[in-house]
Design a protein around this nucleic acid. Structure first.
Length: 281
DNA sequence: CCAATTTGACCCCA
DNA sequence: TGGGGTCAAATTGG
């Protein structure tokens, strides 16, 4: 019940992230090709599709961005993102309440697989903090990490802080090749609650849909079960993006959403949200 | 045998 | 300088 609200709110938050990322991506794509210099706050993560199980040092990805190479110095210790860059990675926290049914240490199941790489006692905290990284860091150069801290006040609550978004496929089937043949395909995996978003941007000529502006932040409305429209309204001015969200049933109960975005490419882009993209064939 | 976890060392930066 | 984040060798688990 309240769980529902929480999930919905988390989902909405995630959508906001996704929408921003998609918007940013759109802007990048529009600058595509004759790129002079994109916004320095934008950090593109390596495209795992461009290097499937490949070794670093391979030629620039199909994004054509030669700077991508700097992410592939895997042999040496340079394979870290510099701390500066790491700091720019998106970071967010969610509270996860332990589920009585699953029992003790099981509240941290994302749909993503993580590998624990450290545990630290934190001053003033009753419980140690544990550190996880994406299982596919070395195979797909996915830099997503999370840390889990059990709350002092309420031991049934775990504070999960995520850093970076997944650029790996995590076994989630990437967008299929042909259907509506979008100009560009965006794959964005978000690790909020149990949701993973597969984002597909349509071509520039895709049909637009619009909504009445009511909520100061965002509104949503369900549409005949086929999906839910989400509409984000900027604090100033008209809507800067809208999206159609539908649950993807192809993977059974797996919570995957198809999101079709429609956004105003002229809107400001400053999320610094790393993602990856590739041109569809 | 391989992959995940544990755990002390190491390292960076406020 | 030390607190917090990460590394990596040793260990555990499947």
């Amino acid at each position: 019940m309240e769980m529902m609200n929480w999930e919905r709110r988390s989902l909405l938050n995630e959508l906001i992230h996704g929408l921003k990322a998609a918007k940013q991506l759109q802007a990048i794509l529009m600058l595509n090709g004759s790129t002079t210099q994109h916004n320095p706050t934008i950090e593109l993560a390596p495209d795992p599709l461009a290097h499937p199980g490949k070794v670093p040092g391979s030629p620039a990805s199909i994004t054509g961005n030669p700077r991508s190479e700097e992410f592939f110095n895997v042999r040496s210790k340079e394979f870290n993102l510099s701390s500066k860059k790491r700091k720019m990675l998106p970071k967010w926290t969610e509270q996860v309440r332990i589920s009585p049914e699953r029992g003790l240490e099981g509240p941290h199941d994302d749909i993503f697989s993580w590998r624990k790489y450290g545990q630290k006692d934190i001053l003033g905290a009753k419980f140690p903090r544990s550190y996880y990284r994406c299982t596919f860091r070395n195979t797909q150069y996915c830099w997503a990490t999370k840390q889990v801290q059990r709350s002092d006040g309420d031991p049934t609550i775990f504070e999960v802080t995520y850093r970076g978004t997944h650029t790996c496929s995590q076994g989630i089937p990437l967008p299929e090749k042909r259907e509506t043949k979008p100009k560009h395909t965006v794959a964005v995996n978000y690790q909020n609650l149990r949701a993973s978003l597969t984002v597909r941007t349509g071509g520039l000529g895709s049909e637009a849909f619009s909504f009445p502006v009511t909520s100061p932040l965002y509104t949503y409305e369900s549409i005949n079960g086929g999906g839910t429209f989400y509409h984000h309204v900027g604090s100033s001015g008209p809507s800067d993006f809208t999206g159609l969200i539908s649950t993807n049933t192809s993977t059974g109960s797996s919570p995957i959403f198809d999101v079709n975005f429609q956004f105003d490419p002229t809107a400001e882009i400053n999320t610094g949200f790393p993602t990856f993209f590739h041109n569809s064939i």
